[in-house]
């Protein structure tokens, strides 16, 4: 019995151990890796990805998948950019309203996404992928490929203003993480996500409105994608039709590497935090230790597989699909 507990504990902490080992290895090769300055850089690059990963974590806990993030982020970023400039162009004017509007837009896009999946009974994989393409297309149409520059210093203080070496956006992201963790751990909705993911028929038979839980999950994910869009625009000061590009791979990888099982029911947002950090540490470390660029993609893939092997408990499942 004690042995079993040890094994479970080990698996639970495995992603964190992977992260620590990676950091030690990179530091051993180039000590410059282990500096507050570099941690600040890793934190900045992780922030938007963390928001996406949190959003998709809720969906994956339910045993579904959401691939609409790239489209949703691009649409939110572009709409935010236009509204912000339209309504004054600085946080000290009414332009700040663009922020809650963008979050609402994210929720709406999530609602649409969830509705297509649940009401039209299309598998979440296909429904969300398709909605993602719609979003990307919409963003391209709105911008015609042009970039929207958000230069307001107050808004950009997200990345330029630092406390203890980390910019403001990192603290805001941690706050969002805390809220996500509270939703996951202390609300009925959070428990329902696990109920649906752990056994949908059982949850349904117990009187849970599974459809509503699913749609709410997508709405919540949409809000976090909108947050990701805001941080992504804050990070480089540009909103464009490809703001959302690459977030699908990085967020899903992070969630899985962090130990959230794709078959649902286990894991949580803290796993996703560790996963995002693992992926970004690998990304940063490879350049910092001077790995040639042509092997970086390959190494990233190998490290991701290794991390998943180490950090998920695959003994309990008999079929991998």
């Amino acid at each position: 019995m004690t042995r079993l507990i040890t094994r479970q504990k080990l698996i639970q902490w495995a992603p964190f151990l992977v992260l620590v080992v990676l950091m030690l290895v990179f530091t051993a090769i180039n000590p410059a890796f282990f500096s507050l300055r570099n941690f600040g850089r890793i934190a900045i690059s992780s922030t938007p990805a963390l928001m996406v990963a949190i959003g998709v974590t809720f969906i994956i806990i339910m045993g579904s998948i959401d691939l609409s993030m790239e489209g949703t982020i691009s649409v939110c970023a572009v709409v935010f950019g236009y509204l912000f400039l339209q309504w004054g162009g600085t946080l000290f004017s009414s332009a700040w309203i663009a922020i809650p509007v963008t979050l609402l837009l994210g929720a709406f896009l999530g609602l649409l996404n969830g509705a297509v999946h649940v009401l039209l009974r299309i598998p979440s994989f296909m429904a969300s992928l398709a909605m993602g393409f719609v979003g990307t297309g919409l963003a391209v149409m709105m911008t015609s490929g042009e970039k929207i520059f958000v230069k307001d210093d107050a808004f950009r203080s997200l990345v330029t203003l630092r406390y203890f070496g980390f910019p403001v956006m990192v603290y805001l992201a941690l706050l969002a993480l805390l809220i996500a963790w509270l939703i996951q751990s202390y609300t009925t909705l959070g428990r329902n996500f696990y109920a649906v993911g752990g056994g949908e028929e059982l949850a349904h038979a117990s009187g849970l409105n599974v459809k509503r839980v699913r749609i709410t999950g997508f709405v919540l994910a949409g809000v976090f994608y909108a947050l990701a869009a805001l941080f992504a625009v804050g990070k480089i000061g540009i909103a464009e039709s490809i703001t959302g590009a690459n977030f699908m791979f990085i967020s899903i990888t992070s969630v899985v590497v962090g130990g959230v099982a794709l078959w649902g029911g286990t894991g949580g947002v803290l796993n996703s935090l560790v996963g995002v950090l693992i992926v970004n540490v690998i990304d940063n470390g490879m350049v910092v230790i001077g790995l040639p660029d042509y092997v970086q993609d390959g190494i990233l893939g190998v490290l991701v597989v290794t991390a998943v092997v180490l950090s998920t408990d695959r003994r309990m499942i008999s079929v991998v699909k």
């Binding site: 890796f33 690059s45 940063n284 350049v287 910092v288």
Partner: peptide, 10 residues
């Protein structure tokens, strides 16, 4: 943006 940050560390 990210590559430049990594160059700065290295």
């Amino acid at each position: 943006n990210e590559l430049m940050a990594q160059f700065l560390t290295r």
